[in-house]
C-alpha cells in the first residue's frame, strides 16, 4: 500500500529535469557569465601568448585575413639567451624583488609606531596610507621631480649642504659644488635603485595598513600574560606578536612579490627603461619590444612575457598551495 502511494505521487507530479538536478545545474548558471568573460580575456590569451612565442610575427594580416606569423620554434628563446638587454632586465627584476621586500618590515614598524589611541590617530593612519591610493604614474612623476638635480628636492638639499652660491655681475646665480649634484635617474648605476625607492613609498603604506589591521586583532590576553612573564620590547615583538601576525605577513609578502614583478608604470614614467636599458625590467622590456617604433615584434615579445609568466608561476603555485592547505583545514 505504501509503495502504491509513493509511485502514485511520483507519476502525479514528476518533477522536470531541471527541477530534479537543480543543485547540479544552478551553480553553472551563476558561473557562466563570469567564466566566459574570464576565459576570453584572461585564460585563452595566456595560451595564445605561449603559442605565439614560437612564432615570428609583426602583428599584420595578409589580404585574406590570415596572420603572417612564421613558425620559428624555439628561436625566440635562443635569441633571448644572447640578448644582453634581457639579462639586464632579469637582474633588475631580482633587484626589485629583493629590495621591495623591505616594504614588509618597514610597514610593520610604521604600523607599530602608529598603533596608539591618542586623539586624531585615525587621521594620521589614513594620511600615512595616502601614497597607496595615488596612481603609480603620479608617484613616478612626483619622484622624477623629487630627484631632479636642478630644481628637485634632492638637488636643493644637496646644494644647501655641498655647494656655495655665487652671484656674478650680471645677477646670474651659479653654484660651485664640492661634489657634483647627483642625477640619480640619469645614472646607469643608481637609476634602478632610485625607482625602487620611489616604488617602496606606496608599498610600505600598503604593508602598514595590513599590519595595523593585524595588530588590532592580536590576542590581548597573550600579550598581558607575556608581560607578566617579563617579556618586553624586541623579545615580545619577535616571540609573541610577530607569530600572531602571520596571516598579515603572508598577504604582505604576496602583494609585495606581485607588485615587484609587475612594476611597469614607474619605469615607463621615470626613465622608460633608460639610460641605455639599465633600468629595464622584463615587464617593460617586453612592452618595448612588442610595441616599438621599429615595428612590432609580437613573437619575441611573447617569449619575454612567457619567461616572466614562468617566474610568476613559481610564486603563484606556492600561494595557491598555501590557500589549499587553509581550505582543507577550514572545512
Amino acid at each position: 500500500m505504501a509503495d502504491a502511494v509513493a509511485t502514485d505521487t511520483r507519476t502525479r507530479s514528476e518533477p522536470g529535469f531541471f527541477r530534479r538536478n537543480k543543485l547540479a545545474i544552478a551553480p553553472w548558471i551563476f558561473l557562466i557569465p563570469a567564466l566566459i568573460f574570464f576565459a576570453i580575456y584572461v585564460v585563452i590569451p595566456i595560451f595564445e601568448s605561449l603559442w605565439l612565442s614560437l612564432y615570428q610575427w609583426n602583428g599584420l594580416y595578409d589580404a585574406d585575413g590570415n596572420s603572417t606569423a612564421v613558425w620559428v620554434g624555439f628561436d625566440n628563446y635562443v635569441r633571448l639567451w644572447s640578448d644582453p638587454n634581457f639579462w639586464t632586465s632579469l637582474r633588475n627584476n631580482i633587484a626589485w624583488l629583493v629590495l621591495y621586500m623591505l616594504a614588509v618590515p618597514a610597514g610593520l614598524f610604521i604600523a607599530l609606531f602608529l598603533n596608539q589611541t591618542v586623539t586624531g590617530m585615525r587621521f594620521y593612519k589614513s594620511m600615512f596610507f595616502f601614497p597607496f591610493v595615488i596612481s603609480q604614474v603620479v608617484v613616478g612623476l612626483i619622484f622624477g621631480w623629487f630627484y631632479n638635480p636642478d630644481f628637485g628636492v634632492v638637488g636643493t638639499v644637496w646644494k644647501a649642504i655641498f655647494c656655495e652660491e655665487t652671484t656674478n655681475i650680471l645677477g646670474n646665480t651659479t653654484f660651485r659644488c664640492e661634489r657634483p649634484v647627483p642625477d640619480i635617474l640619469s645614472s646607469e648605476q643608481w637609476a634602478t635603485y632610485g625607482i625602487i625607492a620611489a616604488g617602496l613609498w606606496p608599498q610600505i603604506a600598503y604593508c602598514m595598513i595590513l599590519y595595523l589591521t593585524g595588530l588590532n586583532n592580536v590576542a590581548a590576553d597573550q600579550i598581558e600574560a607575556a608581560r607578566l612573564d617579563g617579556a618586553k620590547g624586541w623579545k615580545m615583538l619577535w616571540y609573541v606578536v610577530v607569530p600572531q601576525l602571520k596571516p598579515a605577513t603572508f598577504i604582505a609578502v604576496v602583494v609585495t612579490v606581485i607588485g615587484a614583478l609587475r612594476s611597469f608604470d614607474m619605469i615607463a614614467i621615470m626613465t622608460q627603461g633608460g639610460p641605455f636599458g639599465s633600468t629595464n625590467v622584463l615587464s617593460h622590456y617586453m612592452f618595448e619590444v612588442a610595441i616599438s617604433e621599429y615595428g612590432e615584434r609580437y613573437g619575441y615579445g611573447s617569449s619575454i612575457a612567457t619567461v616572466l609568466f614562468g617566474i610568476m608561476l613559481i610564486f603563484i603555485s606556492y600561494f595557491l598551495w598555501r590557500m589549499y592547505q587553509d581550505e582543507k583545514g577550514g572545512r
Binding site: L31, P45, E48, S49, A305, I316
Partner: peptide, 23 residues
C-alpha cells in the same frame, strides 16, 4: 575553478598583452 580566478588575478599583464591587443 576558484583557484583559476585567484591565479588569473596574479599573472603578469604582459602575458595577455599581445592576444588582447590583437583581438
Amino acid at each position: 575553478l576558484f583557484f583559476l580566478f585567484v591565479a588569473g588575478n596574479f599573472i603578469p599583464f604582459q602575458i595577455l598583452m599581445v592576444p588582447v591587443r590583437d583581438m
